[in-house]
């Protein structure tokens, strides 16, 4: 009986951790808003506030990740990247990935 109970407990724990993993999966669309990407690139990610800012909807995730990381680190400092560098410290590597993967689906 005891053994049986502990098995159930293990099963419940597994189910619980599975549930929390799902809950922790980063939501690229929500991050796009909360990290303020939306302010410059537009709600649909293809209506930037300035014509010399890029449309990013549908961009390849790998490219978007690279650009975000480079702007954050300062490796890329050309063009208008200064405007974006000011907010990139708010975005972690995992969040960059989630945002880029969401953008690719648009």
């Amino acid at each position: 009986m005891k053994k049986h109970n502990s098995l159930i407990a293990v099963a419940l724990l597994a189910a619980g951790s599975f549930g929390s993993t799902q809950a922790l999966a980063l939501d690229g669309a929500a991050l796009y808003k909360s990290k303020t990407c939306i302010a410059c690139h537009g709600a649909d990610a293809k209506t930037p506030i300035m014509p010399n800012y890029p449309k990013i909807a549908g961009q390849n995730a790998a490219y978007a990740i690279q650009q975000m990381q480079d702007i954050k680190s300062g490796a890329r400092a050309n063009g208008l990247s200064a405007a974006m560098k000011g907010v990139m410290h708010l975005v972690s590597d995992e969040e960059i990935k989630a945002i880029a993967e969401w953008l690719e689906t648009l």
Partner: peptide, 12 residues
């Protein structure tokens, strides 16, 4: 303030 700049323009 490069981040804020476009939002201060008359267009925005």
């Amino acid at each position: 303030n490069p981040t804020m700049y476009p939002f201060a323009l008359p267009k925005a």
